[in-house]
């Protein structure tokens, strides 16, 4: 997305957030957009004109499903009469190459069943995942790979 388009998109989102579509507020949005872009350009700006919309929706669907499962699971763990968790930290090798992909993956890991991303290694290749079910590390990794990583790779990489 060219920077100008990005700025206008952010300004439009600002209008929606604010709830009043006057030129003045659009201008405020543009000023905010300039600040946002100024600070985040280095880390996230990628010269891509469009997302692959289809794959993006596939990711959203998969993500919402995982989110649902995650909440049922938290519900079960928290309200069970006796806590039965086996926490631990496992490394997860990611195939995501771009900063956007790794960020999306780490973010999604936190919101999905039994997993929480704690840190990303310096070479951006390994995400350290805190899990509540350490006895089945392969299943946890497989869940991330199928449920999140593949859709993300399809959408943004």
């Amino acid at each position: 997305m060219p920077l100008a388009t990005l700025a206008f998109t952010i300004a439009t989102i600002w209008i929606f957030l604010h709830g009043s579509a006057t030129p003045g507020h659009f201008f405020v949005g543009l000023v905010l957009a300039l600040f946002i872009i100024r600070f985040l350009k280095k880390s996230y700006y990628q010269d891509r004109t469009f997302f692959r919309i289809g794959s993006y929706f596939r990711f959203m669907r998969s993500f919402i499903w995982e989110l649902f499962i995650a909440n049922i699971q938290v519900l079960k763990i928290v309200l069970a009469p006796r806590l039965s968790i086996r926490p631990g930290i496992i490394p997860y090798k990611t195939v995501c190459k771009t900063p956007l992909g790794v960020t999306m993956l780490a973010n999604s890991i936190t919101l999905t069943p039994g997993t929480l991303s704690i840190d990303v290694s310096d070479d951006d290749e390994t995400i350290f995942v805190h899990t509540l079910d350490i006895d089945h590390p392969d299943e946890v990794a497989e869940g991330i790979r199928v449920g999140l990583e593949e859709p993300i790779v399809g959408a943004v990489e």
Binding site: L67, A70, N71, V74, L75, I77, V78, L83, I85, P87, T110, L111, G114, L116, I118, H130, L132
Partner: peptide, 14 residues
């Protein structure tokens, strides 16, 4: 939940 990491699970998802 027993420690800060497990607690973050509940705090973020739910």
């Amino acid at each position: 939940l027993p420690d800060v990491y497990c607690r973050m699970h509940a705090a973020t998802k739910a």
